[in-house]
Design a protein around this nucleic acid. Structure first.
Length: 295
DNA sequence: CACTTGACCTGTCCGC
DNA sequence: TGCGGACAGGTCAAGT
C-alpha cells in the first residue's frame, strides 16, 4: 500500500495529533515480526516518554521520543497508523463507508496509549509491516538507511543525479529500476505506472535503451505525481488510510493505475491495459507507451 | 556480479 | 455455496 505520498500524509497527520503527548502504555500482539522489541526495552525507553517529533525517510516513519529512542515503522503493503482521541470512543460514530471501524480490530498489531486517553493503533492485515525501537542516533546506521536513494521531491535531486544513479541499472527494465529503493526513495507500484505513463515510456523498456532526455522527463513526472498525490492525501486503492482513518483521493486523478479497460485520457479510443512487468501488475496505454527499441 | 523469482501473510475476487 | 487459484500498495533471501 503505502508509497512515499501515503507515508508522508500519515506523517503530517500524526505530527499534529500526537507530538507532545506522553506514552502511558504500549501493547502488542504475539507476533514478534510486528514488534520485535522485548518488554524491558519498552518499559525503559517507551513508557513515560513523550513524542518529540515525527519524521519520514523513504517509506519509513520515525517517532522520536524524549528518551533518545525512536519508534521506526514500515507499513509495507497493508499497514495503517490510526489515531483515535478519547472522545471518539474508538468505535461508534464513524461513517459506514470508512475503511476502519471499531478499534482495536482483527488486524491491530500494536496499541500505543497516551496520557490523555487517546490511542494510536498500528494495524496490518498481512503482517508484512513492522514497528521497531531504535536509539535515535543509530537510525542513520540501519542497513536500509545506508543504502536508500535520495528523496525524489528534494530540489537537489536533479535530473543529473537521477540519471547517474539509474544508469547503474542499465541492464534491467525501467520499471524495476525506479522501484529499486537504492536508486531513489519512495516509488512503488502506483507511482511507477503513473509516472511512466506521464513520460510515455513502456515499463518493460531496458534502461540502457532510454535517452537521458527521456529519463529527465521521467524524473519530472515522478516529482509531479508524488507532489500531486501528497496534495490529495495519497491513494486509497484498497486499505490505505491516513492518521485519522480517512481515505486519500489520488485515485480520482490516476491516469493508468487500476484503470485497465477504461479509456486513456490522451486517446479516448484506446483502452488502458494491464500487463506484468518486474513481477508486478502494470498498467499502460499501448498507444502512448509503445514497446520500442530506443527512447 | 546483476538480475529475476519466490517467500513472507491474510483477505478477496473470479471461474468452475 | 464451496473450493482452488490468482492477485494485492513492499522488501528480502535465494536462485539463475
Amino acid at each position: 500500500m503505502p508509497e512515499l505520498p501515503e507515508v508522508e500524509t500519515v506523517c503530517r497527520g500524526l505530527g499534529s495529533l500526537i507530538v507532545g503527548h506522553t506514552i502511558r502504555l504500549l501493547s502488542c500482539d504475539d507476533s514478534p515480526r510486528s514488534f520485535p522489541n522485548i518488554k524491558t526495552e519498552v518499559d525503559l525507553f517507551v513508557i513515560g516518554a513523550s513524542v518529540m517529533g515525527i519524521r519520514r525517510r523513504a517509506k519509513l516513519l520515525m517517532l522520536d521520543l524524549s528518551t533518545g529512542y525512536s519508534l521506526v515503522v514500515h507499513l509495507k503493503m497493508t499497514g495503517q497508523l490510526v489515531y483515535r482521541g478519547d472522545t471518539q470512543d474508538f468505535g461508534a460514530g464513524h461513517p459506514s463507508d470508512s475503511l476502519v471501524g471499531e478499534l482495536p480490530d482483527k488486524s491491530t498489531r500494536v496499541i500505543i496509549e497516551f496520557n490523555n486517553n487517546s490511542k494510536l493503533f498500528f494495524n496490518d492485515q498481512r503482517k508484512f509491516g513492522w514497528m521497531k525501537l531504535y536509539p535515535t542516533v543509530e537510525i542513520p546506521n540501519i542497513d536500509f538507511m545506508q543504502k536508500v536513494g535520495p528523496e525524489p521531491l528534494e530540489k537537489e535531486f536533479t535530473a543529473k543525479v537521477f540519471i547517474s544513479r539509474i544508469r547503474r541499472r542499465n541492464g534491467t527494465t525501467i520499471k524495476a529500476a525506479i522501484l529499486d529503493q537504492t536508486v531513489l526513495a519512495g516509488v512503488g507500484n502506483i507511482y511507477a505506472d503513473e509516472s511512466l505513463w506521464g513520460a510515455k515510456i513502456h515499463p518493460a523498456t531496458r534502461v540502457k535503451n532510454i535517452s537521458d532526455k527521456k529519463l529527465a522527463l521521467l524524473l519530472k513526472e515522478i516529482k509531479y505525481v508524488m507532489g500531486l498525490s501528497i496534495e490529495k492525501g495519497g491513494s486509497t486503492s484498497k486499505n490505505y488510510v491516513d492518521a485519522e482513518g480517512n481515505k486519500g483521493s489520488y485515485m480520482d486523478f490516476a491516469r493508468v493505475f487500476q484503470r485497465n479497460g477504461l479509456a486513456c485520457s490522451r486517446h479516448s479510443d484506446t483502452m488502458i491495459e494491464k500487463i506484468r512487468v518486474a513481477g508486478r501488475g502494470t498498467h499502460i496505454c499501448p498507444v502512448c507507451q509503445p514497446e520500442t527499441e530506443a527512447n
